[in-house]
């Protein structure tokens, strides 16, 4: 306990905790939509493409984060335009930008005179090195997210749930789709400070998967995903300190452990849903039926 109190005295540790909290809101909420819309591969592609932007910006003497944001946003929107009947092309395009982004980043890193430690930090992340500008970016991203949800949350849910029906209803499906992809790009850039480009997709997918195994409604899924992400990031930070581990992998492994625990809890006995109990028909999903036999 004294050790924790001593840690909290340190500026860099308090920054890291704040970064973990700010990023958890972003990762939990955006990640839930990423998982529900099956955009996990797209998120991975965008994260790796962002590395190309980092490399070019670093080589050009610009803020690396600027290059990452620009390339992440462009690649997310570009991939998003290849939707619908062009899904197979999108899948192939994800592979292309994934590999080419990494290659461009590495080439420009090679061309940059001297050693580029910050760039390698982006690859594997280091939450202990977050700066005040990193925190400002994370806070700005959270504000944008909350604003977007406040203005069009229900419409975003409608589009995420059933794009075809939303289009028939006259909702601006493309606008909301691109908005979601831009939020994915922004999340990638914020999260790469915590766990790095290589592991960023884990924070967008593991916490929502934990939530999906514990709760059922969308609101609860969002809340639990945010909580699971916070638990993984702060817990991973403490584990990394305690056992002298790299922070990014420690965070991801803790998130994976949470998923394992959630999977165990998920195999619970069948519960009857009150909504259908009235007609004498217990509600059982396929998974619960299986767990019912085990119980």
């Amino acid at each position: 306990m004294n050790e924790l109190a001593a840690l909290l005295e340190l500026d860099f540790f308090r920054h890291a905790l704040l970064a973990a909290t700010l990023a958890s809101l972003l990762a939990g909420v955006v990640g839930t939509f990423v998982v529900l819309k099956r955009l996990v591969a797209l998120g991975g592609g965008v994260a790796h493409a962002a590395f190309g932007g980092l490399g070019v910006a670093y080589w050009a003497g610009l803020p690396p984060r600027l290059g990452a944001v620009a390339v992440a946003a462009l690649s997310a929107v570009g991939l998003g335009l290849l939707d619908g009947e062009r899904a197979r092309r999108q899948d192939a395009a994800i592979g292309v930008i994934w590999a080419v982004g990494m290659a461009i980043g590495l080439v420009f890193l090679h061309w940059t005179p001297g050693y580029a430690p910050n760039l390698l930090g982006y690859l594997f992340g280091d939450i202990l090195t977050v700066t005040e500008s990193d925190l400002a970016l994370a806070a700005l991203a959270d504000l944008l997210l909350l604003g977007a949800l406040g203005l069009g949350g229900r419409r975003l849910v409608a589009v995420a749930f059933d794009e075809e029906a939303a289009r028939v209803q006259g909702l601006p499906v493309r606008l909301y789709g691109i908005g979601l992809l831009l939020l994915v790009a922004l999340s990638v850039v914020v999260l790469l400070q915590l766990v790095g480009i290589v592991l960023v997709i884990a924070l967008l997918s593991l916490p929502p998967l934990v939530a999906r195994r514990l709760v059922r409604s969308l609101a609860a899924t969002l809340a639990v995903a945010v909580g699971a992400c916070w638990l993984a990031t702060t817990g991973g930070l403490l584990l990394a300190y305690r056992f002298d581990l790299p922070t990014g992998p420690a965070i991801v492994l803790l998130a994976a452990a949470l998923l394992g625990l959630a999977q165990l809890v998920h195999r619970r006995p069948v519960r009857r849903a009150p909504a259908r109990a009235s007609r004498g028909s217990p509600v059982r999903s396929g998974r619960n039926r299986r767990s019912g036999r085990r119980a």
Partner: peptide
Amino acid sequence: GFPIRLEEMVRLGLLRGR
């Protein structure tokens, strides 16, 4: 598998345009 109840799905049908 989308986490939405029947009632919520029907309510989404009320959304129209911008």
